[in-house]
């Protein structure tokens, strides 16, 4: 039986932990709201970009000069995996999930005889992948200390990927990130971005029958539009991941707060029992002392 003093210290320490976790939960909740708004606000641009891109892609389809950002290099040898994680931990399995999915994907590709390169976005993922696959990492980007992600950040990544593609260093690029589904569910998603995936089956090209004119020509526009579309895709993944991170942290901290509560309850019960036992013991001592006189 631990002493009363030890129990008291224990209870106090759990109480202060609980205070911290519940504060972190509140912070995560408010950040989550902001991240969701940001993701919401980015949607119109992405949708319209997508519409334009499809119209353009349809009109250059089959052309031998179609740009590699759209159709890839024609090879399937070197895969770039972009692992998007958070810069901070204490968010449950959020970061490890992406790390593990990236590792499994890398193993699978290598088993098929492909070369894998990894671009780690976010400090936690970088650290994880460094332990596991350090030789494949070709670069990392972290946003530690940054309050919010803006489009410029995504553009930077896009430029980097496009440069690697242009230099013939990669053939296929895939983003691995946590898609925000709800506060309690983040789904690890592997999304191929180069070559651009074909539109989902069964969906016909909806340009309301319009045949577009292009000014200047399709290929000049495409050359400008594709890097932008790539940046948008990265921006979306970054925002989804940011929202997911806060959601995951909120859930993790909620659980931690609840566990701390349970623990405090158990410890206080032990403490009270011990105190009562002590009092009983002292009473017995006094009574038997008095009887002996």
């Amino acid at each position: 039986m631990p002493s009363l003093k030890a129990l008291r210290t224990r209870i106090n320490s759990v109480k202060s932990t609980q205070k911290i976790t519940s504060a972190m939960k509140m912070v995560a909740a408010s950040k989550l709201r902001r991240a969701q708004q940001q993701a919401e606000a980015a949607r119109p641009y992405a949708e319209r970009m997508d519409r334009m891109l499809r119209a353009l892609a349809a009109s250059v389809a089959g052309s031998p000069t179609a740009p590699p950002l759209l159709v890839g290099t024609g090879a399937d040898k070197v895969h770039l995996l972009i692992a998007v994680t958070a810069d901070r931990g204490l968010a449950g399995a959020f970061n490890t999930q992406v790390g593990r999915a990236t590792r499994n994907l890398a193993r699978r590709l290598e088993a098929d005889g492909k070369t894998v390169k990894i671009l780690a976005v976010g400090r936690k993922g970088r650290d994880y992948l460094r332990r596991e696959l350090s030789s494949r990492i070709v670069g990392d980007i972290t946003y530690a200390g940054k309050r919010r992600i803006d489009f410029g950040d995504a553009q930077e990544i896009g430029v980097r990927i496009a440069a690697m593609l242009a230099a013939g260093e990669i053939d296929v690029a895939t983003v691995v990130y946590n898609r925000f589904q709800s506060v309690i569910a983040q789904i690890v998603t592997e999304q191929q971005i180069i070559p651009a995936p074909p539109p989902p089956a069964g969906e016909t090209l909806d340009t309301s029958g319009a045949i577009y004119d292009f000014e200047p020509d399709e290929e000049t526009i495409l050359a400008k539009l594709l890097p932008q579309a790539l940046a948008i895709q990265m921006y979306r993944s970054l925002l989804e991941s940011a929202a997911g991170e806060h959601g995951a942290r909120m859930t993790a901290m909620d659980n931690a707060t609840r566990n701390a509560g349970d623990m405090i309850k158990r410890l206080s019960q032990n403490y009270n029992r011990a105190r009562q036992a002590n009092i009983t013991k002292e009473l017995i001592e006094i009574i038997s002392g008095a009887e002996a006189v």
Binding site: M52, A55, L56, T207, A210, I211, Y212, D213, F214, E215, P216, T220, I221, K224
Partner: peptide
Amino acid sequence: PASEGDMGVMEGHTPMIVM
């Protein structure tokens, strides 16, 4: 401000994608 000169757009304009 289209890439090849300013462009006025009114209803019923022919469908275009411009830079």
